[in-house]
Design a protein around this nucleic acid. Structure first.
Lengths: 322, 322
DNA sequence: ACTGGCGATGAAAAGGTTTTCAGACCCGAT
DNA sequence: ATCGGGTCTGAAAACCTTTTCATCGCCAGT
């Protein structure tokens, strides 16, 4: 069912058909009406590939995530997918399996099928990222690179909430279990934490770096206990859950013996016992904002930056210092 | 970066470039080598829209999931995405937000941009599903409909493993917390469970139906305790985690007072304490198999059915009956 | 009556690839 | 020397749509 067939049946040229459908105001009402009726009765829908070929617009977005199995990401994907859908765009999803080297290749591969790409927590180095952003309209989510539109969260404020909460409970010696050294998110966390604790009476012990997964937390738990702190802030919730798991196995009571605080607020955080106190980062909102920024970039060709609020979720894993 | 540019640099025609890349055996080795090198160095990837225009194949697959935030699905998506990628296909992801009415619309919308669709645990009714499968090449994952290619798991065997495990531990009174009444998965579970317990000395108490989420488990936990059973099998892991959570809050010891057994083996299952004994369903493998069946369907136009093995994972939440 | 301008339409080009068909070349056989 | 056959390559058509440019007819204004 092609445009020519519609044109033939309606007794007009193909040009008039496309006009009647996509810029109706330029065709005579009678003609427009007739063409649209014929198109509808024949069940005609323009071939998107052919349209994309000439307009350069595909009506699709790309979305790259490092690891969909990491519970931090699915909500972001939902946000992106939902908002993209509202804007009548479909979403290509690609999972890079935490391989920084694979990212650029996937982006370039997707590039010609999409109008723009949302890069979620990309692991690749900044220069390469900047180069990529020059080739394809790109928005970063949870990564910041000057000149590239990005969605992040107020880490500093989140960390301030976390530390204030702990000091209010009487904690003075706090450990931080760091994530991967090369991770942008980890650098942001460390920077924020140091800034917040600098002029306070808090004594900060940094340990790590661990992989940002459950086993990472398990592996460092005993060292945390040996450090003689009364509270520990983990790089993220998965690491915090690893700590909780190992603490439970060793009979260490949380929060009576030690308080544990995570970062992200993944769904699991409130399913465990004790439920995890954590700094919630916007996820679905971040995905939506990413699409908004992409639409803005495509429309007005300007790079915008957006910083979303964070919120400490106080649950059962933090309590008064011993 | 078009095929012409590659052709120009390599000193051949566009036809030779496309041959060197897609049907290498028909071009002289020296030419082939040179063309491929030039293409690689220029970062050339064929424009898929243009290719699709002439071949009729888009090189894309669609993937529908009910809710990506449900931890059962991300791994399936990874499986689909990974295998599709190996077959040089990109994947459109759509999340239906558990809305059966939205499914058909999304499929039809995606239909024109893809060669086929993987429908993951679709919630829609069977007749509608059958109609859809007639319009677009479709493969079902975790749903079975006669005549439509499908990937499922050996629920009966999984349930047998679960019940044998419990009876070996001395359990005789077992509760089953059912999922949504309309859910295909729940019907399969119930059918398997009844078949397995029919001629045994096990006394089965069915309760529910609950929503297949954490709060569903929380909400039914007290009724489970009141039922006087020594073990409970939950519709899925999320419900089981809800049970564990409420049991912990009430001071009921697991597995000393009651054994808890889940279904799915989502990643959280081994992160909680006690870790959850559960029947593992293949997830990534199911996604891969879905793509395999889709490729098979497109290639040979025949519908295949595949049933993957299940495996009981014994962890800390089950123990000897009191 | 003529010009200018406007509204509506069609013809044709463009977009990037694959495929078909024909041609060029080389080798071995007659 | 010619021919047949095989291998490799290039030119051109085809896929379907949108957009540009040109044409046509008509009306208002002079």
């Amino acid at each position: 069912m092609t445009i020519r067939e519609v044109a033939r049946v309606a007794g007009v040229s193909a040009a008039t058909v496309t006009r009647a459908l996509s810029t109706p105001e330029v065709v005579r009402p009678a003609t427009r009406q007739r063409v649209r009726e014929v198109a509808a009765s024949l069940g005609y829908h323009p071939n998107r590939a052919a349209r994309g070929l000439i307009t350069g617009r595909t009506g699709n977005f790309g979305l790259l995530v490092p690891d969909l199995a990491n519970p931090f990401f699915p909500s972001i994907v939902k946000g992106v997918q939902g908002r993209a859908h509202e804007a009548d765009h479909a979403v290509f999803l690609a999972d890079t399996d935490e391989d920084p080297a694979a990212e650029a290749g996937l982006v370039r591969k997707l590039a010609k099928q999409v109008d723009g790409i949302v890069l979620c927590s990309p692991r690749m180095a900044e220069p390469e990222l900047r180069a990529l952003a020059g080739e394809v309209p790109t928005v970063l989510v949870y990564r910041r690179v000057p000149g590239v539109p990005s969605v992040t969260a107020e880490f500093l404020d989140g960390m301030r909430q976390a530390v204030s909460h702990l000091t209010a409970l009487g904690h003075r010696r706090i450990a931080y279990v760091a994530g991967p050294r090369t991770s942008w998110a980890n650098r942001e966390r460390v920077r924020s934490l140091r800034a917040v604790t600098r002029r306070s009476e808090v004594e900060l012990t940094e340990m790590g770096n661990v992989i940002p997964q459950f086993p990472g937390g398990v592996s460092v738990a005993d060292r945390v206990l040996a450090a003689g702190v009364t509270a520990v802030i983990a790089y993220n919730d998965l690491v915090a859950l690893g700590l909780l798991h190992r603490f439970a196995a060793r009979g260490v009571a949380v929060p009576d013996d030690i308080s544990v605080l995570g970062f992200d607020d993944i769904p699991l955080a409130e399913m465990v016992h004790p439920a995890l106190t954590t700094v919630a980062l916007p996820k679905e909102e971040a995905g939506q904002a990413g699409v908004d920024l992409l639409l803005h970039l495509l429309d007005r060709r300007t790079a915008v930056r957006r910083e979303l609020p964070t919120q400490l979720m106080v649950r059962g894993s933090t309590g008064p210092a011993r």
